[in-house]
């Protein structure tokens, strides 16, 4: 592989390494075993949301509702548990609910011919958050069974359970996107929906699936978060849709669709987690953290643009 191609593939990863090195010198606490485990655990929810968001963004779409679907799933799974539903069943039900809410997004987009995914998912963002607040009257539902809490707070050896969940989802999504015909269809839709349709890709069905998957990962995030906080609370995931979009974009995906990898997205989520954690350790205020993350998003995309332009120039010189 050429140096340029290597840089492109591993750019976000190099960024993460550099960031770790810098934070390691700035804070004694950063490069400790406990803290790195801590970062992985804190990044888990965003990583899960970002996986679903990645699949959506590959189709040149956007899902603004992931944070709210997380909130609603969080409340519903807690209600189910409180009603005595066995935790395993409640987890499956929550994933199903998330998938169903996501597929509503897809149906609205494809069947009502709404002009842009922004619209149905913006609607769902409000509806799901509102329902979450209505259902529990605004109160958190706490004291969940410990076998359920495992998914957010437990660990196997020294590996936190949320990290295991993220790894499993990453492997499944990676295989799905790169090794299955449906995954290839999804990239094609993002690259050129018209050509995909004329090549026999059932575009509508694929889009519905894509938004359903995004709902499923949001629900998975809800399970982890509810376990971590020992409660289903309606404000869960407020604003996290933007964090997930940021992670996907930092991870090298393109808003224009057709481009994006699971590995890059995971690195993007870790960059955000590491940044927040490092700044917390240095007692930097949340307001400044917001500023830094904004700068990183723009810088990551700008680096990508510069790199692409250099590549084009190189190609033009060869031709």
């Amino acid at each position: 592989m050429s140096p340029a191609a290597l840089l492109r593939r591993f750019g976000p990863l190099l960024g993460l390494l550099a960031l770790c090195a810098v934070l390691g010198t700035l804070s004694d606490h950063f490069l400790t075993f406990d803290n790195l485990i801590n970062v992985f655990r804190q990044s888990a929810v965003n990583a899960l949301l970002s996986l679903g968001q990645l699949v959506v963004i590959i189709t040149a779409g956007i899902d603004l509702s992931v944070g709210s679907i997380l909130g609603l799933s969080c409340v519903l799974v807690a209600l189910l548990l409180k009603a005595g539903v066995p935790p395993a069943l409640a987890v499956l039900a929550a994933l199903g609910i998330g998938g169903a809410l996501g597929s509503v997004n897809g149906l609205l987009l494809t069947k009502l011919h709404l002009p842009h995914p922004f619209i149905p998912t913006l609607g769902m963002m409000n509806v799901a958050r509102g329902l979450a607040l209505v259902i529990c009257g605004g109160f958190p539902i706490s004291e969940l069974p410990s076998s359920f809490r495992f998914w957010g707070a437990g660990s196997v050896g020294w590996i936190p359970a949320p990290v295991i969940v993220v790894v499993v989802f990453c492997v499944v999504f990676h295989v799905f996107l790169t090794r299955t015909t449906v995954g290839r269809d999804i990239y094609a839709i993002g690259g050129n929906p018209q050509a995909a349709l004329l090549s026999g890709v059932p575009v509508d069905a694929r889009l519905i699936l894509v938004y359903a998957l995004s709902g499923v990962t949001a629900a998975a995030g809800a399970i982890v978060l509810a376990g971590r906080m020992n409660s289903g609370f309606p404000l869960a995931g407020m604003g996290s849709e933007l964090d997930s979009i940021a992670a996907v974009i930092i991870g090298g995906a393109s808003f224009f669709g057709g481009v994006g990898t699971v590995g890059g997205t995971l690195v993007g989520a870790l960059i955000m987690g590491v940044l927040r954690n490092g700044l917390n350790l240095m007692n930097v205020s949340a307001y400044w953290q917001t500023v830094v993350i904004g700068v990183v998003i723009v810088a990551a995309v700008w680096v990508d643009v510069v790199r692409k332009r250099a590549a084009e120039k190189g190609r033009a010189a060869v031709n």
């Binding site: 990239y187 690259g191 050129n192 050509a195 004329l198 890709v201 481009v259």
Partner: peptide, 15 residues
């Protein structure tokens, strides 16, 4: 309408 320009020859041929 014919091609996914950003994708590879392999991906287009197999689509």
């Amino acid at each position: 309408k014919g091609l996914v320009l950003g994708a590879t020859l392999h991906q287009n041929i197999a689509l």
